[in-house]
Design a protein around this nucleic acid. Structure first.
Length: 742
DNA sequence: GCCCGGTCGATTTTT
DNA sequence: TCGACCGGGC
């Protein structure tokens, strides 16, 4: 049964557009996923398009999975034949089939960022370059950037720049090393397909013939090489439909080119454009405010979100003294919402991961359950990486990064010196690390390795060989425990008996669950395919809805999600917008988009907050309110103090706030682009009152209390207040906005 | 081979 | 402030 009649006219137009290039400019919350799904269903059901002639590309596995599920629900098992995947998994699928064209082994592995770093470091060492001058991160930035632009090593131009010349040398050695290890990094996956298509035009035309219809989601986040890939693939039929929102392009630092979406109508001259501006997620207040913020950007196609959801609450703006107060405020608010919303319906967004700490401290103190996303990823945990390295070594022993990683884990007494010797031989004889390992102890190879180490290595080689035998005999879910056991890894954790080792064990158990999940929803399950899936998986993919936890994440991670209650914290210059983007107008625009993304996640209640002092890297930073706060029209915001304070409601009624928007009264002395922005900042002032010990006061967040201590004077006056709720706080008079209660 | 202690540096991160 | 990383000492 089609639900197409529930679509609005614009959405319907997008769904029923059939042939030729189409750009769907889909604002936040405008139901674009639905449109994509209905469009695919429409093509298959009404236009009798065969599922395998459709390619749909998304950016996250989560999005791909969800779309697949929803299409299957409408179409049945036929939907399985639609090619629905991320850019990277699509490329991996293609490469597994045609790897030999590029002289690669079919069992090549995918290297993640950590592996990349390891390789670069090794090369720097071999080339005698200091990793202080040639920071691996910086080198990898250039390598990744080149690949994002669709360039291979040969194309990499140093423009006579000495540093870039060295980068190029490292780049060349890096690619050679990857090749030797039968590995590709994320960027390679895309570039290699481009190379494959260049080298074997017949393969390209095979895919061109197959994909009559191509859909690309989040088009604003494609990079140059992804753009080229799509352009090639749709060159025969020109049935390309891209969906995106230029206002939500927030991954420039990863090579995303907003220009791709801005130029779509130039690239595909007869392209039709459909704007989806009706929002089904948020209230009008939230949308109007978000519209106003994003209007500050120059480079955009222009779009105004609107909704029939009603005006809704004003955006609550909180200003506090220190980060602690902000955390306190957020927690108080969360508690006050708990009757109306579950914890899982609330989320706190911040610009940088480091900000989560003060929030976490307070959440713990107040016994509010929370979950945090990002930070250390599941698959980045040492124990998971180690086990994965075992699995990778079994599938592809040429992967010397993996083999070296586990050679001495658990500790086998095979140390750095030994590894170094083996490495040297491997380089000299142009053999893989594993091959050298295998020949250790044989008479023709004298490495000057101690007898003890030699026998340890032989045991290790035997271990992997045994494991590979067992792998053939056991199913994947039986094999993993077997591996935990035979390697001694589990025992090692048992012996450790620390809190960390306990959590490591839990993670390993969780990895078992991941395998079970994997086995239950894929037919041709094998270790190779499992590794592929894991190497392309991310943490967000594991994000499920749980009602018992408040969600904490960076604004980046929040993209694509929605919550009834949202707290956007740390709205301060230098943090949001981040200091690294402050003197580049283009970067500021990206920060503004990020702010827009954060705001438009909120369905009902949006809170934005900033403080004047924040502990960062151990020192106190004095903060200035974010320019984005200035861009919020005052008619859509309410300052804390004008709004009903959370539990408990103060007993006073009169409002003392003189200025409606005290935080905006700053003078811009250097109006545009001036690096030193002189800012005069005013705070909401309470009338000066003769505060004395014992005075009963009221605070908008903490409620009623009693002053127990006073120190300092003038602007520096601090009071200690014992609140009736139980906590005691030291507050700076100037910012605390305390009210007297008679 | 391994452990410890000083130094340095520190956005965001769908794959 | 906190962690990763390296080099020296055992």
């Amino acid at each position: 049964m089609s639900r197409r009649n529930e679509l609005n006219p614009r959405q319907l137009e997008a769904v029923e557009h059939y042939e030729g290039p189409l750009l769907i400019l889909a604002g936040a919350g405008s139901g674009k996923t639905r449109v994509l799904i209905e469009r695919i269903v429409y093509m298959i059901e009404e236009k009798r398009v065969r599922p395998w002639n459709i390619l749909a590309v998304t950016f996250t596995n989560k999005a791909a999975k969800e779309m697949k599920m929803r299409i299957e629900k409408q179409l049945g098992p036929d939907a399985k034949n639609v090619w629905m995947s991320t850019f990277h998994s699509f490329c991996l699928r293609v490469l597994r089939r045609h790897a030999e064209v590029l002289n690669y082994d079919k069992n090549f592995v995918v290297y993640d960022t950590t592996d990349q770093r390891t390789v670069v470091k090794k090369i720097l060492k071999a080339m005698g370059l200091s990793d202080k001058v040639y920071k691996p991160q910086s080198i990898l930035y250039h390598i990744d950037r080149a690949k994002n632009h669709g360039l291979t090593v040969e194309d990499f131009a140093s423009d006579g720049d000495y540093f870039l010349q060295k980068v190029k040398e490292v780049f060349i050695a890096y690619q050679a090393e990857l090749k030797k290890n039968q590995a590709m990094d994320f960027g390679d996956l895309i570039v290699s397909v481009l190379r494959l298509f260049g080298k074997a035009p017949e393969v390209l035309s095979e895919y061109q013939n197959q994909f009559h219809y191509i859909l690309v989601d989040e088009y604003q986040d494609t990079n140059k090489s992804q753009y080229t890939l799509i352009k090639l693939l749709c060159d025969k039929w020109h049935n390309i439909c891209v969906v995106g929102d230029d206002d939500q392009s927030i991954y420039k630092f990863r090579g995303a080119e907003i220009q791709n979406i801005l130029d779509f109508q130039i690239d595909y001259p007869n392209a039709k454009m459909i704007r989806l501006e009706q929002n089904y997620r948020s209230t009008q207040n939230i949308l109007s405010a978000a519209n106003a913020v994003i209007r500050g950007n120059d480079k955009r196609m222009g779009k105004e979100l609107w909704t029939e959801n009603g005006t809704g609450d004003l955006i609550k703006v909180y200003t506090g003294h220190a980060d602690r107060d902000e955390a306190h405020y957020v927690c108080a608010m969360i508690k006050s919402y708990q009757e109306e919303y579950s914890l899982g319906e609330m989320a706190i967004f911040y610009r940088t991961n480091a900000q989560s700490r003060s929030l976490e401290d307070e959440l713990r103190k107040q016994k509010i359950n929370y979950r945090i996303f990002g930070g250390i990823k599941f698959y980045d945990r040492a124990e998971i990486k180690n086990i994965m390295a075992y699995l990778k070594s079994l599938v592809n022993p040429a992967d010397s990064i993996a083999v070296k990683r586990i050679l001495n884990v658990p500790l086998r007494g095979i140390g750095k010196t030994t590894v170094g010797k083996i490495d040297d031989v491997a380089t000299q004889q142009d053999k893989s690390f594993w091959d050298v390992l295998c020949s250790i102890g044989s008479p023709e190879l004298d490495l000057n390795i101690s007898a003890a180490a030699t026998s340890k290595i032989q045991e290790f080689v035997q271990l992997l060989k045994d494991l590979n035998k067992a792998r053939a005999e056991l199913s994947l879910d039986d094999f993993l425990p077997h591996l935990y056991d035979k390697t001694g890894y589990w025992q090692m954790l048992v012996d450790e008996k620390t809190i960390e080792s306990e959590s490591r064990k839990e993670n390993l158990t969780e990895l078992g669950n991941v395998i079970d999940d994997y086995l239950s929803d894929s037919e041709d399950a094998n270790l190779e395919a499992f590794l592929d899936q894991i190497s392309l998986a991310s943490d967000v993919d594991r994000l499920d809805e749980s009602p018992e936890f408040v969600n904490l994440m960076t604004v980046h991670l929040a993209k694509g999600l929605e919550f009834p209650v949202v707290f956007l914290v740390g709205m301060e210059e230098g943090l949001f917008p981040h200091s690294r983007s402050i003197d580049n107008p283009e970067d500021i625009e990206e920060e503004r988009r990020l702010c827009y993304v954060g705001m438009t996640r909120a369905k009902k209640k949006l809170h934005m907050s900033f403080v004047h002092e924040r502990r960062l890297f151990g020192t106190v930073q004095y903060q200035i309110v974010s320019r984005f706060m200035d861009e919020l029209p005052s008619e859509h915001t309410s300052l804390l103090g004008e709004l009903e304070a959370p539990t408990p409601k103060p007993r006073y009624s009169e409002q003392r706030y003189v200025s409606k928007k005290p935080f905006t009264t700053r003078k811009k002395v250097a109006p545009r682009g001036g690096s030193e922005r002189e800012i005069d900042y005013e705070y909401a002032q309470t009338d000066q009152q003769p505060f004395k010990r014992g005075a009963r006061v009221s605070h908008a967040v903490f409620g009623a209390g009693k002053i127990t201590h006073i120190e300092g004077g003038g602007d520096k006056m601090k009071v200690t207040v014992e609140f009736t709720q139980g906590m005691t706080k030291k507050l700076l008079m100037k910012h605390a906005n305390l009210k007297f209660m008679s």
